[in-house]
């Protein structure tokens, strides 16, 4: 055990050195953008933090009724250099709260809603709605809740008791067949099921889809994501079900705070952000407010 410690330390050292090329790459990027006169808002990367450069965060309604975020008197921009705008007040307030909550340094890895807005505004991968839907539905073929283990018996039973109710729920809710499998190839999911989901997802707007796809990416499960978005599951339940095997192993071998809890809270935060983003961006959220006002 003691012999392992020095090698562990060495690993840490190597790892931090491996991050260095990333930093230099960022400098290059910055040079590149200044030479082509692209106005680029300075966001950090996933690990770096920036010093806080503003005091007051306010929102204002600009052209076309879109909401903007103001840091002191400057308008917030996206990493792509666009003006940062969101479609409704609730989302603007939630984003402003993220910026307001930063203390001495800006921790972008805690600002999930801002990140999602940036993705929707800049669309860095240049995808349209159909491409996002296809990417989201790909997860159905490898859906977490469809793959069952044959041993150990405790986990077999846990998967059956916890995952079957959600599968039953989604099959009834959307009138589709999904099923589960013990084979490594997974269940054969009928084309009609995919078509039903494809049509359903088509009714979402672009922003909501970005949020939903993010949730699916986090949970690695279309079934659990629909359970959450349709308000059948809470975030805590969905994340627990997505991490069922890990939770089983934790029960057996013990919990390690800096790995298990760390991952779980991150997954919860990301999933909650994606779901909230989808709710707040949906047209019905804006519609409902109008009905209540009239």
């Amino acid at each position: 055990m003691f012999a392992m410690l020095p090698s562990l330390c060495r690993f840490h050292r190597q790892f931090s050195r491996a991050l260095l090329p990333l930093v230099s790459r960022q400098v290059e990027l910055k040079l590149l953008s200044s030479s082509t006169h692209v106005q680029r808002a300075k966001y950090g990367n996933a690990t770096s933090e920036r010093k806080k450069f503003y005091r007051d965060v306010t929102i204002s309604q600009g052209e076309g009724g879109l909401y903007e975020i103001n840091l002191d008197r400057k308008k917030l921009k996206t990493p792509g250099g666009k003006l940062f705008t969101v479609p409704n007040e609730a989302l603007a307030i939630a984003v402003a709260t993220e910026w307001d909550a930063q203390k001495d340094t800006l921790k972008f890895y805690t600002m999930h809603l801002t990140t999602l807005c940036n993705t929707a505004l800049d669309n860095p991968t240049h995808r349209d709605k159909d491409q996002i839907i296809s990417a989201a539905l790909k997860f159905l073929d490898t859906d977490t809740v469809c793959y069952r283990v044959e041993e150990p018996p405790g986990l077999v039973e846990l998967q059956k008791n916890e995952w079957d109710p959600v599968l039953d729920w989604i099959e009834r809710r959307y009138n589709v067949v999904i099923g589960s499998s013990f084979s490594i190839m997974g269940p054969q999911i009928p084309e009609e099921t995919k078509e039903t989901f494809r049509q359903h997802l088509g009714s979402y707007n672009f922003w909501s889809l970005i949020g939903l796809e993010y949730v699916i990416n986090q949970l690695k499960s279309v079934v659990l994501s629909f359970g959450l978005i349709d308000r059948h599951l809470t975030v805590e339940q969905a994340v627990l079900l997505a991490r069922l095997e890990e939770e089983y192993q934790i029960q057996r071998w013990g919990n390690v705070e800096w790995a298990h809890d760390y991952d779980m809270y991150e997954l919860r935060a990301r999933t909650a952000a994606g779901a909230l983003f989808a709710y707040l961006s949906s047209e019905s959220a804006t519609m409902k407010k109008k009905i209540l006002q009239d």
Partner: peptide, 19 residues
């Protein structure tokens, strides 16, 4: 439900940052 999701976002972000 929406407010529960928001609560979860705030709580988990805080706990994750602490860790």
């Amino acid at each position: 439900h929406t407010s529960q999701v928001y609560l979860c976002l705030l709580e988990s972000t805080r706990l994750h940052l602490d860790l």
